[in-house]
Nucleic acid binder design. Structure first.
Length: 203
DNA sequence: AGCATGATGGCCT
DNA sequence: GGCCATCATGCTG
């Protein structure tokens, strides 16, 4: 797979990533739930929920770079979350990885996540997905298409997808930019942000 | 320098 | 369904 295939708008990139395989530190997993984010106010995909929306900062700099890189950020002080940067270099867009099926390396995942966790929940939720695969903040900016890199991405076949609003965002809360593979138990439940306006209110 | 805010997760009833 | 721990980030002053 070449990075050029990811130089596309974030929802199309999100659809492309469903069914892709992520390989990291002894674990292989199939991506089954993602969310698209992108842009700045006057850019191609304006999205008030995106980290990039208010312009480049040290934290979100990778989002403005070339596609195919890993963008990590810390959420609520403790969880690491992972995105695949998409869109042409110079634009800001990314796909948040929200859930995956663990295909290989489950024993290693259990060292990281614990023995009590149900199989379907091992990599359910963006923070849990990173914990399961051992993705850390130090991996921010690496090239996911480099076959010798620590975190690698391989596209899979096209899978059926369903879409709906993104989880936990307070702005553009109705925009259906979350995509998932139907009927997979690994997909997380929808939660609307308590700070979001009532459903149906304009963005 | 202080403060409000989460692209969360786990535990409670 | 609800609650809240916990802290990096970025905005305001």
């Amino acid at each position: 797979m070449s990075a050029g295939r990811l130089a596309i708008e974030p929802v199309a990139a999100a659809r492309l990533l469903l069914g892709a395989t992520l390989r990291c530190r002894g674990v292989a997993a199939t991506i089954v739930e993602v969310e698209a984010y992108g842009g700045v106010p006057d850019g191609p995909w304006p999205d008030p929920a995106a980290h990039s929306y208010r312009g480049p900062t040290p934290r979100n700099a990778v989002m403005f770079g070339p596609p195919g890189r890993l963008y990590t950020y810390r959420s609520y002080g403790m969880h690491v979350c992972a995105n695949v940067v998409c869109g042409p270099d110079g634009t800001a867009a990314a796909v948040l990885l929200r859930a995956a099926v663990v295909d290989a390396g489950e024993s290693l995942v259990r060292v990281r996540r614990g023995d009590a966790v149900p199989r379907a929940a091992l990599a359910r939720g963006p923070g849990n997905l990173c914990a399961a695969l051992g993705i850390a903040m130090a991996d921010n900016g690496i090239d996911l298409l480099d076959p010798s890199g620590p975190v690698r991405l391989e596209l899979g076949g096209k899978l059926p997808d369903q879409s709906g609003p993104r989880v936990g965002v307070s702005r553009a809360a109705d925009r259906p930019w979350r995509l998932w593979v139907p009927a997979r138990p690994e997909v997380s439940a929808y939660r609307r942000s308590p700070r979001a306006p009532a459903p149906g209110a304009s963005d």
